[in-house]
Amino acid sequence: MIRFDQVTKRYASGHEAVHDLSFELAAGEMAFITGHSGAGKSTMLKLIGLIERPTRGHVTVNGQNLHGLRRGRIPELRRGIGMVFQDHRLLMDRSVYDNVALPLIIAGQSREEIARRVRAALDKVGLLERERAEPVTLSTGEQQRVGIARAIVAKPSVLIADEPTGNLDPQLSAEIMQLFADFQQVGTTVLVASHDLPLVKRMGKRVLVLNQGRLLDDWRPGGG
């Protein structure tokens, strides 16, 4: 569950990336954020993972108000959130398996549990056969799928993705988006930022449209 209450984020430069933004995404709901580049999509996602703190207003994730969250508790918050990045941010000097295992190692899981879950996650994204491969030997789409496997391997309740299909062709983009939809199916709250409006519309999910840091539209399927 994600809730924004009148959230404003102004950077030190004076640029206001997000202005008085309020919305709620129920647990298990999926939504897209779209808008032009610079509309505030990335900032919104950063506020959820406390990569940035809001200048005003409150962000609540899984019932936890992030406003008073001490710095020392941030790692714990992030372990409950799966993050997917446009440039996937894999560790290039480690195998696919080791990349996906990282969140579980951080969480202190046993080796057997790690092996089981990593294989399950890689199987889910269709890369089980590539677990020993170096990320550089994979295609861009495959790298992004490793990034997604890493994001979901610890079974986070919230999954956020920043332009996950930014570098992919339409066919691969659709496959990736379908993966996110699948995670929603199993109860994960999913929030995906994307400027690929045609693709977003085809997914038939809720769409938050941002413009210059303000919420321009909150479109829900069926409800219009």
Partner: peptide, 29 residues
């Protein structure tokens, strides 16, 4: 809220959808 069962047979990450409360943070040994 999560009555919806996983439909796709590709969903092998977990057998059944766990409740949100259980998944707030990954279980840490």
């Amino acid at each position: 809220m999560f009555a919806k069962k996983p439909t796709g047979n590709r969903l092998k990450v977990q057998a059944s959808p766990p409740r949100a409360a259980e998944r707030a943070t990954p279980r840490t040994r």
